[in-house]
Simulated assay, not measured.
Amino acid sequence: MTPRILIGATGSIAVTALPLYLTELRATLGATITVLMTHTATLFLPPHTVAMHADRVISGESPTDWPTDKPSRLAAEHDLCVVLPATAHILAAAATGSAPNRLATVILSARRGTLFFPSMGAAMWEKPAVQRNITQLQADGHHLPPPEWHTTTDIHTGALSHHPTIPSPATVTKTISDLLD
């Protein structure tokens, strides 16, 4: 059976690498992939670009889309919901049960735990509030593999920055495959 994966894409600079992950998932798992983009994700990466790498792309919050893109239907039609990248904002929404956008509503509607791949600045990651949200999400049955830490140069300041980000496409694909088994 072909796995059906719903990828929630959020507004992080890391979302620009999403096509690499989608390509790896399709090549390795033969998965059917729907991408649900938050409004801020579309500011970093156009939905028509994502559409070249996915079976379906949903973006925007229009109620006119609800007959086909209702959150409970999206959750039910997929074997796994994966948030890639997961910002501090979506982690907080999911941990507290709020639904500020369609992606958060889908996470609330899913019967099985969501897989989150966090990506954010080190200062955010280390905040007690973010760590509490991660602990709560894990207690609620969601999956948050540890992020990989990378050192990059901040293009504005020129300073080196060491921060958590999404693992490689192969590692993400393996983690998803393991959860689908």
Rank of each mutant, 00 (worst) to 15 (best):
M1S: 13
T2C: 04
R4K: 14
I5Y: 01
I5F: 04
L6A: 01
A9C: 08
T10K: 00
S12Q: 00
A14Q: 01
A14I: 00
A17T: 02
A17K: 10
P19N: 03
L20D: 12
Y21H: 07
Y21F: 11
L22R: 05
L22G: 01
L25K: 05
L29E: 11
G30C: 06
A31E: 09
T32C: 10
T34C: 05
L36P: 04
T38C: 03
H39A: 12
A41D: 05
T42H: 05
T42E: 06
T42R: 07
L43A: 15
F44R: 00
L45K: 05
L45T: 07
P46L: 10
P46D: 14
H48S: 14
T49M: 11
T49S: 12
A51P: 03
A51Y: 05
A51F: 00
V57Y: 05
V57H: 04
S59V: 01
S62Q: 05
W66S: 13
P71N: 09
S72W: 14
L74G: 08
E77Q: 15
L80I: 09
L80P: 07
V82Y: 04
V82G: 03
L84P: 02
P85E: 07
A86K: 01
A94P: 03
A95P: 05
S98A: 12
S98D: 03
A99Y: 02
A99N: 13
P100A: 09
P100R: 06
P100V: 09
N101H: 14
L103D: 00
L103I: 01
A104I: 06
V106W: 09
R112K: 15
R112W: 00
T114E: 04
L115Y: 05
F116E: 09
F117R: 09
F117Q: 09
P118T: 03
P118I: 00
S119D: 01
S119T: 02
A122W: 13
M124F: 10
E126K: 14
K127E: 12
A129F: 06
A129C: 07
Q131K: 08
Q131E: 02
R132I: 02
N133A: 09
T135N: 12
T135H: 06
A139T: 10
D140A: 14
H143G: 04
L144N: 02
L144G: 04
E148L: 13
T152R: 08
D154Y: 10
D154V: 11
A159H: 15
L160D: 11
L160P: 00
L160E: 15
H163T: 11
P164I: 06
P167Y: 08
T171W: 04
T171E: 10
K174V: 04
I176K: 06
I176L: 09
D181N: 13
